[in-house]
């Protein structure tokens, strides 16, 4: 980092339990309806859900960001609509509606282009030979509101800043000139370009909601109750327990070295099967794959998760499992609101 980024007084953060994501995209819809329904942001998903193993969104984002595997700055790539984001389809609605019911010729609703990529294009594809080891899991993603934001460091106009009160990273669109170095530099590709207003745009962690003590829309609307929201320094809160106390929530690609404040509980998976269909000792999602995503700490996290799960199976108490199960949704969101999040 060349710019001096003051440490915020507090840091708001999110944990997502990947064992509970059902890939329903309610989070993405909640976010998009709230913040991004304009022409210039039509293609953007501040929150999206990817199927992993898969290409992600934008396609191949881990390869096109502005950081090497050792955290060094490298020239990133600007995603385009054809190959990375996916261009919006147009449909033959008029032709379908004008179909003569008496006619034998039926016109079916279909895109008028021949698309080759788009959000969720590879949804549920996954990897592995069926039925021995086929697998996939969902990876919801949003801006990580990093400690050392690559986007902030990339802006020559200092249009991006990290809020002192809660560490949320924001774009000052009045200062932004749309150079898109931030889009290039973010190794998570979570800054977008509003092509109508010609400025950068990104997740604001539902800042107006957080200021009122309400969790971001993506978290609040999640039917799977997999998201936890709170402050890093709140030792009674879910973030501290999951990240620091039990160490089961890990940042995505920690090797980029920019300190994400969104953390993931890695997915446990069913065992692989042998040729006779008998379960093996190995999980379908390999630890090497998870290590590639979450770093070496994933081994300790997985050991803890499996041990605590076994405790619960033996009807022993487990604070960790109770928290992850989210019996009481109010325990999942701990902001500064005066009222309980969920009545």
């Amino acid at each position: 980092m060349k710019y001096n980024v003051p440490t915020p007084k507090r840091q708001v953060a999110m944990v997502l339990d990947l064992n509970k994501c059902l890939g329903c995209h309610t989070c993405s819809v909640a976010c998009k309806k709230l913040w991004n329904s304009d022409d210039g942001t039509d293609y953007t998903y501040w929150n999206n859900v990817e199927t992993m193993p898969g290409k992600g969104y934008p396609a191949q984002w881990p390869q096109t960001g502005g950081r090497t595997a050792t955290g060094e700055v490298k020239q990133g790539e600007l995603p385009n609509l054809d190959n990375a984001y996916g261009r919006a389809w147009t449909f033959n609605n008029k032709a379908v509606l004008a179909t003569d019911q008496a006619s034998k010729k039926k016109e079916w609703l279909r895109p008028q282009e021949s698309p080759t990529w788009g959000p969720n294009w590879d949804e549920d594809h996954g990897a592995g030979q069926y039925p021995q080891e086929n697998h996939y899991f969902y990876l919801p993603r949003l801006c990580n509101h990093c400690e050392k934001p690559a986007c902030l460091d990339a802006c020559p106009r200092q249009s991006i800043y990290k809020r002192e009160e809660d560490g949320i990273v924001l774009v000052d669109q009045d200062k932004c000139h749309g150079y898109r170095f931030c889009v290039e530099a973010c190794p998570y590709k979570k800054v977008y370009f509003d092509h109508q207003r010609q400025v950068a745009a990104k997740c604001i962690f539902c800042m107006p909601r957080v200021e009122e003590g309400t969790a971001p829309a993506c978290a609040r609307q999640c039917p799977g109750r997999l998201r936890f929201v709170g402050y890093r320094d709140d030792k009674d809160g879910p973030i501290h327990k999951l990240v620091d106390k039990y160490k089961v929530a890990l940042p995505l690609h920690p090797e980029y070295g920019i300190g994400p404040n969104v953390f993931y509980v890695p997915p446990m998976s069913p065992p692989k099967l042998d040729d006779q269909g008998r379960p093996l000792d190995e999980m379908r999602i390999s630890m090497s794959y998870l290590e590639n995503m979450f770093g070496k700490a994933v081994h300790g996290a997985m050991d803890t998760l499996l041990a605590e799960r076994d405790k619960r199976r033996q009807e022993q108490p487990s604070e960790l499992m109770d928290l992850l199960i989210a019996y009481d949704w109010n325990e999942s969101f701990k902001l500064d609101g005066k009222t309980r999040e969920v009545i």
Binding site: M1, K2, Y3, G66, E72, V73, K74, Q75, G76, A150, D153, A154, C155, P156, R157, Q158, F181, E184, A185
Partner: peptide
């Protein structure tokens, strides 16, 4: 000479 830490290294 460019401000920030990205452009000066990436380019």
């Amino acid at each position: 000479m460019q401000p920030g830490g990205y452009v000066m290294k990436a380019y």
